[in-house]
């Protein structure tokens, strides 16, 4: 077994799924919304990037590869805003919001993916190569362009987002809303506007993940479902609402996935993963965050 390959794979998966998990985590804790429309956001970003690429090539415009990435992020953010406008803003102050919000996102997912299927047809699309075909080798570890690019860009974006959340006023706003939405409105934070920021942000993360994943897989209406499940399980494992927990969980589950795939076989990935998650959660109902953060309990 080559430790290097396992490590690289684990890191790549951790980066991509970690972005989704952090999105889910932030959405749940600041908006109280379980966003199951990730599949749709994911597919929307992929199709958006593909469609704009197709239009540009039809018009004989050469898009730089980074533009594809940016378009994916923007399309993801747009889908996030759409989900926010439909599933959060109208009902966030109504009774039984958590359940209704979750079902609303499922409905959006159903409509969105079926709509994409109906519009684009069942054939999967592939995006152009973004990072080219180079590779670097260091101490026996081979980093291909794809993995290096995925790791680099996701860490870059994630780092920027976390820094922004830590230091800026908007970030304080979002974190305040994560702690206590009622008190947040009392200090003058607009819940709906913050909701829009949060959803655009998480949508952008999902869009980036979609474009990065489509380098290895294809763009299809249901491509987002497996990443959603992975993201949800990482978010659960890390503890909903905890960014640090999600990062650790992403690394743990990434290692688990890479090790399982390399030792037992790809089809057992989900089984070992869920065994791991259930084990963690049965010990700590709040996931890894429950171990990290002692100040959470009121």
């Amino acid at each position: 077994m080559d430790i290097g390959i396992i490590a690289v794979n684990a890191l790549t998966l951790a980066c991509i799924y970690g972005m989704l998990a952090i999105g889910i985590s932030i959405t749940w804790s600041s908006l109280g919304l379980v966003n199951l429309a990730y599949g749709f956001m994911f597919a929307f970003a992929g199709y958006g990037a593909w469609q704009i690429n197709a239009w540009c090539s039809a018009a004989h415009l050469a898009l730089p590869p980074v533009a594809t990435l940016a378009i994916g992020v923007l399309c993801g953010a747009l889908a996030g805003l759409l989900v926010c406008a439909l599933a959060f803003i109208p009902i966030h102050d109504k009774p039984n919001f958590t359940m209704r919000g979750m079902v609303a996102t499922i409905a959006i997912d159903l409509i969105g993916t079926q709509g994409l299927l109906w519009y684009f047809g069942p054939r999967a699309k592939s995006l152009p190569e973004i990072f080219g075909y180079w590779q670097i080798e260091y101490g026996g570890i081979v980093l291909t362009a794809n993995t290096a690019g995925a790791i680099g860009s996701s860490i870059l974006l994630l780092g920027a987002v976390l820094l922004w959340m830590k230091s800026s006023r908007r970030g304080l706003e979002i974190r305040a809303m994560m702690m206590n939405p009622h008190a947040a409105s009392l200090v003058g934070i607009g819940v709906r506007r913050t909701g829009l920021y949060v959803m655009a942000l998480t949508g952008g993360l999902a869009g980036l993940a979609a474009v990065l994943l489509s380098q290895t897989y294809y763009v299809s209406p249901f491509a987002g479902f497996t990443p959603l499940i992975k993201g949800v399980s990482i978010a659960l494992c890390g503890g909903l609402g905890s960014v640090a927990g999600a990062v650790i969980a992403a690394v743990i589950l990434g290692i688990n996935e890479a090790v399982t795939a390399a030792t037992i076989g790809g089809q057992y990935v989900l089984i070992t993963q869920f065994a791991l998650i259930i084990a963690i959660i049965v010990v700590r109902p709040r996931g890894i965050a429950g171990i990290l953060d002692r100040a959470r309990e009121a």
Partner: peptide, 9 residues
């Protein structure tokens, strides 16, 4: 909802 997500998985 932790449980809901887990069962979905």
């Amino acid at each position: 909802f932790y449980y809901a997500l887990l069962t979905l998985g």
